[in-house]
Amino acid sequence: MKILIIEDEIELLIAISNFLIKGAYVCELAESFAKADEKISIYEYDLILLDIGLPDGNGLELLKNIKKRQLNTGVIIISAKNSLDDKIGGLDLGADDYLTKPFQLSELNSRIRAVLRRRKFDGTNVLKFNEISINTESKTVSINGTDITFTKKEYDLLLFFMVNKNRVLTKEAIAEHIWEDNIDLANSFDFIYTHLNNIRRKIKAANGNDYIKTLYGMGYKFSEK
């Protein structure tokens, strides 16, 4: 999977690419409009992460160029501006998603995987982890081949865990993923316990293993052991 990261802040660029390389992606980097434009005209990418606040040009212009040349490339806009106009503008121009800085890598990962699934680069709609499999098209969960009914939030939560398996996720990161920034998070952690307990209960009832580990009461990790 080949990803082009366009971001003018070098440290951010390196942090993102290090993370993605660990996830077995092939990354190319561009820190300016000119460089990005050149790369787009030569190579083909499965996904482009595009910071629209570039010093030498408007990222939305770049998006137009991308869509002209590579119709099948997924694009996720990264912006420092939490602006609805920019978001709508970007999505209208053909971007798949819009992520506001600052974001967490687990959230970025989840968005990237969603775009790749939607654009069928993953080849399959089914996400598997041992006995648990999630069909992202029909939005169903099955354990040991049996379909289990999950509520929408439970499904979102489990998918987030599976996409970010072996990663430590803080309660805040989980809450934010579920709520998409819309909420004053101060008192909204209780519901994570509730949902997690429901998920654990449902998986256990279907003879599945509990892969969700609690870390010092502050975070969770979905992993084999």
Binding site: E9, E11, L12, A15, I16, N18, F19, A80, K101, P102, F103, Q104, L105, S106, A173
Partner: peptide
């Protein structure tokens, strides 16, 4: 932007 960098590094 600096907040993003701090956040990503802490997360790693």
């Amino acid at each position: 932007t600096p907040i993003s960098i701090v956040l990503l590094n802490l997360e790693e």
